[in-house]
Amino acid sequence: MINDLILKIRNLEIGYGKETLYKGISFDIRKGDCIMLCGANGSGKTTLLKKITSLCDNIIMIPARIPKVAGFTTGEYIRLICYKDSDARGRLSAEQEDMLKDAIRMMSLDKLTDKDISLLSDGEFQKAGIASALARKATVILLDEPTAFLDAENRLSVLNALNGICKQTGCAIIFSTHDLNDGLKAATKVIALCADGHFRCSSENMQETVNGIFKGKV
């Protein structure tokens, strides 16, 4: 069990500027964890994710609302994230090409690699973002609201993909979301930024933890 540990977070503090939002945030990130992060609007979900990104090297955060810029194919878009490892003509090493292909296959984007990203559905575009994180062999992938603006079908498809990644690759995922019910189906652990100023984390009583979000709200 101990060997599974990727990152131990202890007594983390988050806030905007001088104002502290939450103190004493402590939880473990283990291999294969699919963690749902929930909280009201403005509770500090994105701030917490950004903070976690800065804690360790091999963490990649996929931001919310990346614009779908016309003029790039899905393949080119996924490749962009490996830009530091590519040569002047944009070519990657054979090993990295394989990783890229695996990531694309895992997200079932094989048929879409030559399609312009502006023509992808929001769900497919989100998956392309996840594929790029996989291609970089991240041990922890953070996603800021991957299900925002998605319809029910796309939402489930993205969440299932997240759960599948955790099981297959053993990397850990933390995703923030407002779609609590759908999120619970995919998550193995829940962390909640609650209105009463407390931080809650649980892998057993997930539903109860989620219910705690709005507790203490006046």
Binding site: I60, M61, I62, P63, I66, P67, V69, F72, L80, I81, Y83, K84, S86, G90, A133
Partner: peptide, 19 residues
């Protein structure tokens, strides 16, 4: 050029790519 490709997708995306 590669950096310009990345910045089109926003500052957060650029940071994600390590730029």
């Amino acid at each position: 050029t590669k950096e310009l490709d990345i910045i089109i997708f926003g500052d957060d995306f650029a940071s994600m790519a390590g730029a």
